[in-house]
Every structure is written in C-alpha cells, then in structure tokens.
Design a protein around this nucleic acid. Sequence first.
RNA 1: GGGGUAGUAGGGUAGCCUGGUCCAUCCUAGAGCGUUUGGGACGCUUUGACGGCGGUUCGAAUCCGCCCUACCCCA
Length: 478
Amino acid sequence: MDDDAGALPPKHQFSEWYNDILWRAEIMDVRYPVKGTYVWYPYGFAFRKHVYQRLRDLLDRDHQEALFPLLIPEQEFMKESEHIKGFEDEVYWVTHGGTTPLDVKLALRPTSETAIYPMYALWVRSHADLPIRIYQIVNTFRYETKHTRPLIRLREITSFKEAHTVHATWDEAQAQVEDAIVRYREFYDGLCIPTLVSRRPDWDKFPGADYTIAVDTIMPDGKTLQIGTVHHLGDHFSKTFEIKYEDINGEQQYAYQTCYGISERSIAALISLHGDDKGLVFMPAVAPIQIIVVPITIGKRHEDVIASAQSLEVALRKAGFRTKLDTRETRPGAKYYWWELRGVPLRLELGPRDIDAGTVVAVKRTGGKVILNRADINSGVACVLAEISDAMRAKAEEHTKSRLCTASSINALIAVLNEGKVAVVHWCGERVCGDAIEEKTNASVLGTEVRSPYVSDIEGACIICGKLGKVTLIGWAY
RNA sequence: GGGGUAGUAGGGUAGCCUGGUCCAUCCUAGAGCGUUUGGGACGCUUUGACGGCGGUUCGAAUCCGCCCUACCCCA
C-alpha cells in the first residue's frame, strides 16, 4: 500500500493540513460554488453548537439575546462617515425585488451597528433604560477581495456573535469594554486557546470607534489570527443615530456605546491549535462526541461484547457524557483511525478480555492508555477527560510561549518574524515609526498595552526612533 | 488591485496540442456478496465524470467566446 495515498498532510505543512482536515473530518465542505462561502457539515455544526453555547452561557449572565434584520436601508448605512469608509468597498447590495429595481438599495449587513442603532434610538428614553446589553449570533456578508479561506476569511461570516451595549457615560462604556475583555479571555481560557490581548493602533481600529482592543492567538505557522475585538464607540454613533436619554436632572444626553464580536475564527483557532498529524483533537468541553466506545468483537462472543458495550454507552450517557457506540462492521483499527481523525478526545475499548476482568481500556487522544474499572467508570472517565484538557492546555501554552520573541532592533525584528514568530518590541506610538515598521517587515503592528502572561510590560527605546516606547506586538496576521 | 495556471466520477490523475477507435486509470470513494476482526483486512461483482452557458462542426472532454470556481506569483 502506498503510505501517502489518502494520508493527511503533516501539521507543519499547516496550510495543506488545514484545508484537508476540514473536509476529511467533516467540519466544512469547501466545494460550494460561491466564492468565500462554505457549508457546515452536521459534525462541524455540532462542534460549533457546543462552542457557541459556551459563548451564550458567558453572555447570558447579564446580556440578552435578540435578532435584528439582515437588510439595512442605504440611508441608515450611509449615516456614519467613518463607518462607511471602513466598509463601503465590501458591502453587498440588494438592488432588486424580483425584477423591480428597488427605490432604496438594501445592504446585506457587514456588521450590524446601522441595523441596531436606529432601533436603540427608539428604545432609549431615560437613564433608567440604561445600560442596554444585547447580543445576536448571525451571518454577515463582506465582499472580500483578498484570498478567502474557510472559517478565517469569508464572504459570508456564518457565526458572528456581536454584542452592542449602551451606557450613560464614557467611563461606564469603558468599564463595559474591560468587562468584555475579561469575558473573552475567560471564553478562550476555557477552550485552551492562549490569547494576546492588545490595543490596536489608531489606523487599525474599528471604523467609527474611539479605540479597539483585539484578541489574537498565534497559529501553528506563527501567523496571528484575530479571534475577537472589543470597541469603545464613544458617542460617535449615538450622535449619528440620535441615541439620547433624559438624565436625572431632566437634561437630554447622548449615550455612549460599545460593541464587541467573536466569529467562527474561534472554531478555526480550536481546530488549528489543538489538531495534530493524526487529525482533529477536540476539547472535551466542546467535543460533539466526547467518548467513542469501540467494541472488540471476536467470533462467538460477538453478541456478548455488543450487549456489554451498549450498556456501557447507556451508563455513560446517563452520567451526562456525549457518548457514541461504533458498531460498524469494520476492524477495530480502522475505527481507531476514523475517530482519531475526527478528534474524539477519549476512546473506550471493550473486548472479551475486558468483560472477564471487569475493566475498560481508555485511550486518550492526546496520548496514553489507561485501564479503568467498569464498576466506577463514571469517575474514571471524568478524571481521564480532565487529564486530556490539561494536556491540551499545556501544549497550547507551550506553543504560544515558543512563538514569542523580543527584538530590540529592526534587523532582529525581521529575523524573529522570519523564524515564524511574533515579535515583542518597543514602539513610541508615532504613526511614522509604525509605518516604518510595517514597511520594513511587511508585518503588522498588532497593538500596545499587551495583556498576556507571556509578555512583560516594561517600557523601552522605540525600535525606529529610539524615544521612549511601549511594549508592542508585531506579527504577520491572517 | 495586476499577472498567470487550471477545472475530467467522492478524492487523485491520463487523454486535449493534432476533434471520431473512449468501455481510461489509481485510491483508506460508494453499492452488493463472501471470508475476516485487540491498530488502517482480503477476494469477486458493480456504480459513477468531462465546471456552467453559448458558438464552430456531420461529430466536442478536446477548438473559440463569456461566466463561475480554485490555486500560484507580484503589489
């Protein structure tokens, strides 16, 4: 047999690995014939469901989920000038109803500020109405001209969680920004995705925002992926959309707003950071299938083993584990490879020998095999799943640490980037110096005010002009 | 944004230049039957395609045009 035939490319060929695994493991079918749009397979969609449920749980503490329309009338969309500049080249327009040209063109939302804020203008009346914290999980459309890539650069973002809040004061809005950052870090910590949080340079902030805080993670190839953003909108949009409230003194005041979002790039990060040469590795917390039970059926004891495996599966399900029993008529080895590719974190093997001994063989997707007692299988399984999560966290953190490196000169910076790493430098904050860095390296100034356990925040000489500068992250970004 | 290359069955390819003899081929792709089964089993039988639209032609996977999609290089 040809060893290479049908094999998954090794993970160090990250781009090939990524494209291949998406369809092999039935996450996305990339063959849909519209550029930049892809199909979620049921298995991938189940994974998405568990990830987004965690996001919902995190927000539902003090946010409310709502749903605004996909279509935005041209005049609303065109109200905020900076916002328009940021998006006008990537908006899809609906121009016809059937064969009739529309009097008012309708934009497919590239993001929903201009859909939501006219309604907020109606909803906000008094200080008692504030704060408002609403989120929705929707698809958005952007006419991307760069290379599209499944889950990463899309023309239809299918899973955009966007939150939009309204507050009485700038400071309260800022506090909301801080809260959102904490929430997002909690979300990614729970998924074992290490994050680099930083303040984007002014030229890279959200169009119409006072400032933007971004969450990045480092992909296996050393490029950074933006997996979340939090924007302080100040009163720009409230002035544009007339979002005013009456304060306790009876005065009309403009409100202050924030918005923050996470998309299916979170899924891309999970797949990319945790996967290996064998395929996907799902976090137990979000795995569509946490435990796959493979019966080892031999000859005469076939029925025995199947019956025993079925009762094992039922017991695990009752205990709350997402469990599946693989009774297909193929060899056990084929099933092992099948479920390893699909990222199932824990495999339980049950054969005649185990039935006689009252045991189950547990094999971790992260490596290692342990024998569990059938009698207290629930606690045994819970323990092994926790070990798997720990191993995944350690691996992801090790990867991130190894991909960060300080640089104190422009040549050192270029060398660090060429090693496939993200550089930690000092930058004075001036646009000229920022532009110089980006020009000389072809990389991006990711941000300042870095929050990461791996990056210390000591000031130093700007890598370009030598003046006192802040710690700044430089990397090649997706 | 500019340039280039390509699209043949579930996946990978040959055929195209020089239009017909085409029932092409490989696979951990599908279906069926049998023998198997503690790390990717094997045998036999079988299904299935020329990206889309239009043109040229007696005849198009092959030539021409447009569109769609994908990949690569440059900015």
